[in-house]
Structure formats: C-alpha cells, structure tokens
C-alpha cells in the first residue's frame, strides 16, 4: 500500500516537473539584449576581458564576481571532512587494529599506479594552474589529484596519506583564500576585491588574485578529498 502511494506521488511530481521544464525551451539564447545596461550575463561577457584580464569568463565569475560563493563551497567541503572525521574518528587504543578495506592488488597494478600517480598529479596541477586560461580550475584539478591518491591507497595496503601534511595543506590553502579576501577589505574596502594588477590577457601570470585563489582552492580540494578517502578506506574490522 505504502509503495503504491509513493509511486503515485512520484509520478505526480514527475508530471508537474516535466510540465514546468517543457515551458523552458532548450538551447534558446537566454542572454537577451546585450546592450541593456542591467543584463547580468551580458555584463560578464562584455566586461570580463577589460576589467579582470581573465581569458576564461567562467573562472572570472566563479572566483571573482561570485568569489564569496566559492569560499562558501570550499568551506562546505572543509566542514564535510571535519564532520566525517568527528563521526568516524578512531580512538588511540584502536589505532593498531585499523585495516584498509581494499583487497591486496597484483604487482602489475602496483607498478602501473606508481607510474601513473605522478602523471595524474601533474595533470591536476596543470588544470588548476591554468584555471583562468583554459576550461577547468581549482575544484577539477583538486579532484584529479585526489583520484591519484585514491589509486595509491587502493593498490598499496601500507600507503599512508600523511595526516600532518594534509592538515597543513588544507589549513594554509584556506587561510590564503580568506587572507586575500581580508587584504582586499583592508586596502580597497571590499572583501575579496581584486587588488593586484591584471597583467596581460592570456598570460599565465594575469588576472591578479584570481589564479592565486584558484591554486589555493586546488590544493585545498585535493587535500580534503584525499582526507575523506583516507578516512573512508581505513576501518576497524568487525570481530
């Protein structure tokens, strides 16, 4: 009875949502009149190049126009790791019983992942350093690096992601982000304001604070996701 009710409810909700979404035509140009003064999307497209010297408009929106949101998202990730750590933390006396849940892997996998790991890390670093020039950025680069660590964690049973190092990277990256924000507040009167010179468009060093923030985000995301994986993969076996 309950299941029937749930299915009917789901069908109803699905019907109304598809109805609503069919009203929003797919692929339509929604930017509208680009010369209109208050058009937000058009403003971003027309002004990003001159005002921030960032080639990737999406990055400019994520890190500068809406940088406060990004700071919030980074915090969400930080809190998720902290919360997970508080729920799944291991008492000192259990420390020696902890086991990696993955099965032992063959030497083929082990050697392969040792070759792949630096390459994956390099790709991740490339993605977040070039966040303001090419597609991708801090979150994507950080996630790529974390997959490299995941590969190492599942292929080597005794591989340990250094906790002290993770704490350092995580905290320093977060502090960098907030300090840049506070620096803007002190010197220009607005939190996260781009205070550094823009430089030349399309250069690696351009865009003022934007690449610095994105690199910090990259390190932070990599450290946090690695921390999460490390917590989740190490468990105390049931007796």
């Amino acid at each position: 009875m309950r299941k029937v009710f749930v299915i009917i409810l789901l069908i109803l909700v699905g019907y109304f949502l598809t109805n609503t979404f069919s009203l929003i035509t797919f692929g339509e140009n929604r930017i509208g009149n680009t010369s209109e003064e208050k058009n937000v999307a058009a403003y971003y497209l027309n002004n990003t190049k001159e005002k921030t010297s960032v080639a990737n408009v999406v990055t400019a929106i994520v890190v500068n126009y809406r940088g406060f949101d990004t700071l919030g998202e980074v915090t969400v990730l930080f809190l998720a790791t902290t919360g997970l750590g508080s729920i799944l933390f291991r008492r000192k006396e259990d420390e020696d019983q902890i086991e990696r849940i993955s099965k032992p892997s063959s030497s083929l996998v082990q050697t392969g992942s040792r070759i792949l790991f630096p390459l994956i890390a390099l790709l991740g670093i490339y993605v977040f350093i070039h966040g303001h020039l090419t597609p991708g950025g801090g979150f994507q680069g950080g996630a790529i690096i974390a997959t490299g660590f995941l590969l190492m964690l599942i292929s080597y049973k005794n591989f340990k992601a250094g906790h002290t190092m993770l704490i350092w990277v995580e905290s320093l990256a977060g502090i960098t982000f907030v300090t840049i924000g506070l620096w803007g507040l002190l010197t220009s009167g607005s939190f996260l304001e781009n205070t550094l010179p823009g430089g030349e468009l399309n250069n690696l060093i351009s865009g003022g604070i934007i690449p610095i923030i994105y690199i910090a985000v990259g390190f932070k995301v990599a450290a946090e996701l690695t921390g999460v994986l490390d917590i989740l993969l190490n468990i105390k076996p049931k007796k």
Partner: peptide, 25 residues
Amino acid sequence: MVISPVHYIAVPLLAAFLIPLLSKF
C-alpha cells in the same frame, strides 16, 4: 578597519581554517 557585515563571515572562516594548525602546533 571599518566594521562591516562581512566580518560576521570572514573572521569565523579564518578562525575555522586556523584552528587545526593552532591546536596541533
């Protein structure tokens, strides 16, 4: 520094990122 509403958010965030380092070292 002039007090402004963003202090409500920025200061706790800075503290939250600092606490793991402070308490460990």
